[in-house]
């Protein structure tokens, strides 16, 4: 059991997290924008999350918190 939490309002839509996720479960949230005007990311299949924190390590804006 693991999960990631995105602080959406800080996301700048660089999507570097998507590339490094080994399970490729991070996707662009197509239904919304944050106040900065970026489409943030989200995880729809959270049960597949490994809690490896690679996404958080790669994120330049400290958007991601990881729980395991």
């Amino acid at each position: 059991m693991a999960k990631v939490v995105f602080r959406e309002e800080r996301c700048k839509g660089c999507y570097l997290c998507m590339d490094v996720c080994p399970k490729k479960i991070i996707v662009v949230a197509e239904d919304r924008m944050n106040a900065k005007g970026f489409r943030p990311v989200e995880v729809l299949k959270m049960d597949e999350c490994l809690g490896c924190a690679m996404c958080a390590t790669m994120c330049p804006d400290c958007v991601i918190e990881v729980f395991k």
Partner: peptide, 17 residues
């Protein structure tokens, strides 16, 4: 569940430009 990755204390909680 325990938090395994969080924002470090020494980093101010502000948006980076």
């Amino acid at each position: 569940m325990q938090q395994v990755f969080k924002r470090p204390d020494a980093l101010c909680d502000v948006n980076l430009h």
